Amino acid sequence: MTELVDLSVRGRTAVVTLQRQAKRNALTIELCDLIREAATTAVADGARSLVVTGEGTSFCSGADLDAVYGDAFRESLYGMLHALAALPVPVVAAVNGPAIGAGTQLAIACDVRVAAPGAAFAIPTAGNALAVDPWTIRRFALLAGNGAARAALLGLEKIDADRAHALGLADRLGTVDDAIAWAEQMAELAPLTLAYSKQVLNAVFEPEFEAATAAELTRSFEACWTSDDFAEGRAARLEKRKPQFKGL
């Protein structure tokens, strides 16, 4: 499709492959937009299941930290994540290696995950004063469990493939080929039933927040991105030093 994303078709299954191997498939605005375009185009063209994976040894190392410091990146990232989650076909994440930060977000935006031996999941935002949105935290906790989510978000614990499988964060252990084979099986099932099942699961387990709660959570989320600590995290990265956070 482009140098950054490859879209291939295996019968009724489309495979979207991130191809930014030199940056361990780190996400930029352009890459997020291309993933969304590839996925929606594939479904519009008749794909009945979708696989998302990364080229090389990394699934997605997260957001490209040279590109995340602005509203445009967040709009592109969350637009892509929610588009994947809302697709009417099964979406399988073939987690072929580390899925860190926004990489974990990409993996959990898919319906199911197949984790290779080198796969790992982490959301280390507390280490650089970034933040993920409430949807991400709720979805991660629903999949991995509240305790594992707290350990990952508050203690920066990384979850390897075996533990992810034991927790239910990864549905199967296997390779990209295993993930594609599973997606091909799904593509042979009844499309309307699959779309209905996804719709119910999303409505029951991830309903809209009440207005007051949503507003409060949004304020807290935005406060992280406009804080002095956020600026300190960016400065520390550029200066290659440990950040000194003050809670301001």
Rank of each mutant, 00 (worst) to 15 (best):
K242M: 11
K23E: 12
W135K: 02
V15G: 04
T136C: 11
K23V: 11
D111A: 02
K158C: 12
A116F: 04
V43R: 02
E157L: 10
A179N: 10
V204N: 08
T226N: 12
F140A: 09
L77K: 07
V176S: 07
F221D: 04
M1P: 06
T213F: 00
L65D: 10
A72E: 15
A131M: 12
G174A: 12
N96Y: 02
S49T: 02
P191L: 08
T2I: 02
E30L: 05
S220H: 08
A149F: 10
T104L: 15
L169D: 10
T104A: 15
V15W: 01
V15N: 03
V200K: 10
G155C: 13
P124E: 09
N128M: 14
L18K: 00
I123F: 05
V51L: 04
A47Q: 02
R24F: 12
A38F: 03
I123V: 15
E210M: 03
V15S: 03
A94E: 09
V114R: 07
Q105T: 00
G118N: 14
L153E: 08
V43L: 04
H165W: 12
N128W: 13
V15P: 03
P134H: 08
V114M: 10
L81Q: 06
D111P: 06
C224G: 01
T218D: 15
A86I: 00
S58P: 00
G174L: 10
K158A: 13
R138Q: 12
V95S: 12
V15I: 09
D45H: 04
L194A: 15
K246G: 09
D178G: 15
A131Q: 13
N146Q: 12
P90Q: 09
P124I: 06
A122W: 03
E208A: 15
V5E: 03
A44Q: 11
V176T: 13
L31M: 13
E157W: 08
S197Y: 04
V16P: 03
R113C: 14
R20F: 00
A179E: 11
P191C: 07
R241Y: 06
F121T: 07
R24Q: 13
L50Q: 03
R172Q: 14
T125N: 15
L84R: 04
A22P: 00
A129R: 13
P191E: 10
A42Q: 01
A72V: 10
K240P: 00
A109K: 04
D66S: 14
A212R: 09
M80N: 06
A181I: 03
R20G: 11
A119Q: 08
H165K: 13
Q185I: 08
T40H: 01
V91T: 14
A102P: 03
A93Y: 05
V92K: 07
G174S: 11
Y78I: 01
F73S: 06
T53L: 04
Q185E: 15
G147I: 06
N25L: 02
S49P: 05
K246N: 13
A109H: 04
E208P: 03
A72S: 13
K23S: 13
M1N: 05
